[in-house]
Amino acid sequence: MGTRRRFRRMKRNIPLHVMMIPGIIIVLIYCYIPMIGNVIAFQDFTPLMGFAKAEWVGLDNFQYMMELPSFYQVVWNTVFISIMKIVSGLVAPITVALMLNEVRKSFIKRYVQTVIYMPHFFSWVILGGIVVDILSPSEGLINQIIKAVGFQPISFLSDNTWFPYVMVITNEWKEVGFSTIIYLAALTSIDPTQYEAAVIDGAGRWKQTWHVTLPGIRPTIILLACLSLGNVLNGGFDQVFNMYSPVVYESGDILDTLVYRIGLVDNNYSVATAVGLVKSVVSLVLIGAGYGLAYRFAKYRIF
């Protein structure tokens, strides 16, 4: 290619660079500077002194973190809740999508979709408020039903055995419908002639589902399973924060809520940053691995 032409194209591309300037400035200030700001995890940082004058303390904050009596419990809670969410977040939407796919009356299908997509768009403040109300041991609807059938009321949100499962179930309530969208899209792209061929081979509905439908959406399932790997340390801050209380810290306290309390309630910025940094670094590795697997098995690229 001639230098002249290259130069002309470079000149024409100047506006493309200009367009990105505002976006780049914002991302630099509010994403990249905070990333560098993680250095306070290695300092004894106080807001009055600032970064520059703070004393460097090496790995002291990380050591302090490891010695927190609740640290391992919190890591376990986070992983336990998130893995249950990941597994149910794959199984439930696939099941519902397969069921929706079998519905023949389109108005039923549309009605079901309209209803189950909806909770996705409410915040955990709203949904949490609803859950707290219906699960209330004294007045909540669920416990009224439990009492009516003759059992003792259960305080779901202040009981350490129940709390993680309530997180998983209410999370499914919010997300199951919305997560079916991608599977339904994958289902429509299955070639109908495959079903015809299966029928000729004498396959019934179950066999068609097993041998045509499921293999048809397998790439999508694998892709989403790989990408969900990055969420292993995400217990769901908004959800937990709006439903937990000190009595369920033992089973419900997760890394993000711990960071919040150490940092913004107790104002121990450096330790909170250290915990957050560990989470971010491990998550980066997991997300990287997830994208790597997704590329390998499903030829997925981010952009």
Partner: peptide, 9 residues
């Protein structure tokens, strides 16, 4: 970037 550094910025 994490909660605290973002907050400080």
């Amino acid at each position: 970037a994490g909660l605290i550094p973002g907050f400080l910025v």
